[in-house]
Nucleic acid binder design. Structure first.
Lengths: 132, 132
DNA sequence: TAATATGTAACTACGTTGGTGACAGTCAAC
DNA sequence: GTTGACTGTCACCAACGTAGTTACATATTA
């Protein structure tokens, strides 16, 4: 989100991973890894070579928090236990299949809430906050 | 959830961490650690000594998935980055405070969805699934 | 007192993540 | 065309969290 807000705020030309890393306070490579995920999800475009960098692939008001979450966290937030329970126990045999749809419904509720907020919204709120 | 469903299904007397570990397919100590969190949240009671074990502290239809998630995962699911962004950047300075309420709203939506499902519900669905 | 539980500390193993350096590939500007 | 400025990606390390395990103090029943 920090990266996308930055891209929206400084939309005149691409930003370099060095510049972004300076604002996020991390390493350029970490930013490039993150940007790679956003790019694969179609949220940003990267331009190689000199004067290159990252730009939003869509208007900021058409990228939601949910889009970014999906891009960056492909797996479920509510994960089932990695090792299978004991299939000889009536509960163990069925618990995973029983829980999965409930978890999925919860995640959909989360995604719906996050879908209501766009990068443009966050940028505007950031500007309002920075005015102080 | 597995632990709580088990406790609800076999509600006649306390279950030992050994028995629970057998169904979850893990180690008794891991179960006791988990149960400790559930107990601190007031969802289960533990009885020490011989013939001891774990029992639900409330009826199964008054324990929701959200209760258990809160007990087991005290921190937020949507966490802010650990290291602070650069305060000299307008976006970096404000992004965390701007994002926090949106994240909180998302988590509330998730909690609301998970609150609609109780341990009793899951147990019933497990029984139905095990019938096959 | 003996047997059976939990609570908890300590330790290991493992996977994940952030940070870092290095380097090949790509593009703009001179 | 050469130089310089970028990204993409690899390899590596350190830090961290977690599951599993052993061990032991403590509490309770019989």
């Amino acid at each position: 989100m920090h990266v996308c807000t930055l891209l929206a705020a400084k939309a005149d030309g691409p930003l370099t991973s060095d510049f972004i890393a300076g604002s996020v306070n991390t390493n350029p490579v970490v930013v490039r890894r993150l940007v790679g995920q956003l790019a694969r999800a179609g949220l940003v475009r990267t331009e190689l070579g000199a004067k290159g960098g990252v730009v939003l692939a869509r208007p900021a008001d058409r990228i939601s928090l949910a889009d970014i979450l999906r891009a960056v966290e492909p797996g479920p937030l509510l994960a089932l236990h990695a090792s299978r329970p004991n299939p000889r126990c009536p509960v163990g045999r069925t618990i995973q299949d029983t829980l999965a749809p409930h978890f999925a419904r919860g995640e959909r509720a989360l995604a719906t809430a996050l879908d209501a907020v766009t990068v443009a919204d966050v940028m505007a709120e950031c500007r309002a906050g920075a005015a102080h």
